[in-house]
């Protein structure tokens, strides 16, 4: 495969056009292994498109995306990359458990994985409930659980904590940190700036351009503010002044 020193994701000059409009204008960055990287920015800035391009399900207009040493979307990556879409992608007419069993079979994950991921996202009590009867937060956790099946080396999570109460959000971030500590590379997109502080590295997107690629501390120092929301606003002003 590849050595640990190589980045988990390497994106070079990525351009994506959707609906006749360019939504990513030549973005380049690298994501180190075994860390949580946050993709931040307002809605419509291109976060989902960027994550889809890394998964390899997005038609791209140009540039190169390399994931774990392979071109994005390669057959070899389909078991090692976990992906959770922004809209919960589970079958509403199956129970949580039936959903997980199906995706576990598709991924060739061991049978015990279903119980493990149910516990990890705190849905053990809802395992027999149909997807369609879950609350919004439970639904997105069920969808997140699917992406934790098998043993992905890279997790791409598109807004996994939207609509969750603070206790659950904290638990999920603890889970993400635990995965990163075990060497899993975690990429989480969010438009909530207070989550940014929990990431080791931040990619700040705006209107399809990368505004920053730094650790939260560097970002705070650079913009001279302790508040990441304020730091984001200053980055935009900086860009407009330039």
């Amino acid at each position: 495969m590849m050595s640990l020193s190589q980045p988990a994701i390497s994106v070079r000059d990525l351009r994506v056009t959707r609906g006749g409009r360019e939504v990513l204008h030549g973005v380049s960055f690298e994501v180190p292994r075994g860390q949580i990287t946050g993709v931040l920015g307002p809605s419509g800035c291109g976060k989902t498109t960027l994550i889809r391009a890394i998964v390899g399900v997005q038609v791209v207009a140009g540039g190169e995306v390399t994931v774990l040493g392979e071109p994005a979307g390669s057959p070899a990556l389909r078991r090692s990359v976990g992906y959770s879409t922004q809209n919960p992608a589970i079958y509403r007419d199956l129970s949580v458990q039936e959903n997980l069993r199906y995706f576990a079979a598709v991924l060739g994950a061991p049978a015990g994985d279903v119980d493990r991921v149910l516990a990890e996202v705190g849905l053990t009590g809802q395992r027999r409930q149909l997807g369609g009867t879950l609350s919004g937060g439970q639904l997105s956790r069920a969808s997140l659980a699917v992406s934790l099946l098998g043993s992905p080396q890279l997790l791409l999570l598109d807004e996994p904590t939207v609509g969750l109460d603070p206790v659950l959000r904290k638990e999920l971030w603890t889970l993400f940190q635990g995965l990163a500590d075990r060497g899993v590379t975690v990429v989480v997109s969010s438009h909530v700036m207070d989550e940014a502080g929990r990431c080791q590295r931040l990619l700040v997107l705006r209107d399809g351009d990368l505004l920053a690629d730094d650790s939260p501390q560097v970002l705070r120092d650079r913009t001279g503010t302790a508040d990441l929301e304020e730091a984001f606003l200053r980055l935009i002003e900086e860009r407009q002044a330039a």
Binding site: G73, R78, R79, Y83, N87, A89, I90, V106, L107, G108
Partner: peptide, 13 residues
């Protein structure tokens, strides 16, 4: 429309 197809197309299926 539910996104399950996208999830499957990113899987070994």
């Amino acid at each position: 429309t539910s996104g399950t197809l996208e999830r499957l197309m990113a899987s070994p299926l």
